[in-house]
Amino acid sequence: MAGGGNDKFSVLLPTYNERENLPLVVWLLARTFRDSGTDFEIIIIDDGSPDGTQEIAEQLEKIYGSDKILLRPRARKLGLGTAYIHGMKHATGNFIVIMDADLSHHPKFIPEFIRKQKEGNFDIVSGTRYKGNGGVYGWDLKRKLISRGANFLTQVLLRPGASDLTGSFRLYRKEVLEKLMEKCVSKGYVFQMEMIVRARQLGYTIGEVPISFVDRVYGESKLGGNEIVSFLKGLLTLFATT
């Protein structure tokens, strides 16, 4: 068994209109953790979704128990960074897993994250689409080109020592994530990037696990011109300031 010993893992799931996906991802998480005999809790931070995500979350709390599913909703959309801070305040685990709730990140990788963490006693384990068996599903050539191009540019400019900077499937020691949240100011894709850059600055160690990223099965995937411009701005800001 890949059991976590005395470790407890708190999964932070920020949601906005994930009524379809949330029960599925919770089910997969619960099964994964139970199969590997690992102590866990899932903290759902719903930002006032109009589609009734919160109502589904309440049903899940009844099914799985309020020790496993913690609901910490907020009144309106307040962004990812503050969602993590908000969720972390209620986390009782010594490790935090952050992931998307839209099924693009499969919980089956979490045991591999845990194994990797133990193997190198890492502070952070980051999922990577760009190494080994990692990859994506559901991206056309243009999307892949933008992704590869942006990743190359980032590697050249920042030399971050991690291959996937914009991914958001990661495992953190709780105190490390707390420390990083104090330092990080960016939003969106850049936020994930800044976390890794600051982590390196603070001397934290980072392990990597290849993951497959399956683009949203339900709902719209978002990558527009605005995202690209704000990504470039963020990249240049980090380049000039860190």
Binding site: H106, G135, Y137, W139, L145, R148, F152, S212, V214
Partner: peptide
């Protein structure tokens, strides 16, 4: 970038 684009895994099985 070209090489990495061409070898980007398509995770059909996943």
């Amino acid at each position: 970038v070209g090489f990495r684009l061409a070898t980007f895994n398509d995770c059909e099985e996943a």
